[in-house]
Design a protein around this nucleic acid. Structure first.
Lengths: 148, 148
DNA sequence: GTATATGCAAAACTTTTGCATCCTT
DNA sequence: AAGGATGCAAAAGTTTTGCATATAC
C-alpha cells in the first residue's frame, strides 16, 4: 500500500476518494487525465464520488506535489502524476495525445534567460502543438503507449 | 488609418467594433489584455459593444494572425498584438505583469526535439512563472513599461 | 469525539451561440 | 439590396463553493 504512505507523506488523510483517485492516476494506461476523465473512470468502477471532490482532491494533490496540472490550448486542465523527472510536452492537435520529452539545454537556457532578467522562476511550462508521427504518416497514432 | 488597412489585409470588413478593438490593442499601455479588459476599456470609452462581439472579433483577429492568444496558468485568455518577432513570456505571479524574452537557442532545440520525435510543430508556448525583479527587490514592479 | 472530508446542488466565471436587427459595401 | 456583423440573452463548459452529513483518526 504505497498509495497510503504517499498520502501520509503529503500530509493528507487517507480517505477512500483520495485513494481511488490516486489509484487511477497511477494505473491508468493514459497518463494525462482531465478531472472529468477521472470522474467518469470512478463512476465506471462503481464508485460514489462527486465531481467536486475530484477537483478538490486534485487541487490538494497538486499543492502536495503529487500531481502536475497542465493547461493545454483550449481544453480543460489535465493532470499527470508527478512521479518522474521534469519533462516538457508535445500535444498532437489531431489525435489529442500527449508526448513527453526532455531537453536539458532548453532548461539551462530558460534559467539563463530568467537570471538575465532578474526573474526568479517558480515554475514553467513548455508545450509544442502539432501533428504526431502516427497521424501524419498513416492517419492514426502510432505511439499509444505514451498516449494522452 | 493603418488600422483600416490592417483589417482589409486580414480580409475583414472595417467595422466600428473591429476598429475600436484594434485601436485598444495598439494603443493600450498594457500589452497583454483579456477579453474582459478590452470590454471594460470599451465601456469606459463610452462604446456600445457587447462582450460577445469582443470575443468574436478577437477570435477572428487570431485566425487572421493579427493577435496571439495566450493561456497563462489559471486565468482567462490574454491577447497580444502580433506585431513583433516571436518571443516567449515570463509571468510574474505576484504582480501579474508579463515580460517578453527571446532565445533563439531554445527555439532551435525545440525544433530539434520535435524533429527527433517526427512531430510536426504548428505552434508552441513557453511560459516561465515566478517573481519579477521589482517585486522581489522592493515589493512593486519596476518594469511598468513592459506591463501585463 | 472532533476535526476534516465528502456529496449534492447551486453558483461563478469564461467563452460560445441563436436569432433578430443593423451596418458595410 | 445582400450578406456579413453585432447586440442581447441564453447556453455551454469548467471549476469553485456553501452547507449538511459522513468519515478518519
Amino acid at each position: 500500500m504505497s498509495e497510503k504512505t504517499d498520502l501520509k507523506r503529503a500530509g493528507l488523510k487517507t480517505t477512500q476518494p483520495r485513494l481511488k483517485i490516486l489509484d487511477i492516476l497511477e494505473n491508468s494506461p493514459v497518463r494525462h487525465l482531465g478531472a472529468d476523465d477521472i470522474y467518469k473512470n470512478l463512476l465506471e468502477a462503481g464508485e460514489q464520488i462527486g465531481l467536486a471532490t475530484v477537483y478538490r482532491v486534485l487541487t490538494q494533490f497538486e499543492s502536495a506535489g503529487l500531481v502536475i496540472r497542465h493547461k493545454f490550448e483550449g481544453g480543460p486542465a489535465m493532470f499527470e502524476l508527478n512521479d518522474a523527472a521534469h519533462h516538457d510536452h508535445m500535444v498532437c492537435v489531431k489525435c489529442g495525445k500527449v508526448f513527453e520529452f526532455v531537453d536539458s539545454g532548453i532548461e539551462q537556457r530558460q534559467r539563463e534567460a530568467a537570471s538575465k532578467a532578474d526573474f526568479v522562476i517558480q515554475d514553467h511550462s513548455l508545450y509544442l502543438y502539432g501533428i504526431c508521427a502516427g497521424m501524419h504518416d498513416h492517419g492514426r497514432c502510432s505511439m499509444e503507449k505514451n498516449a494522452a
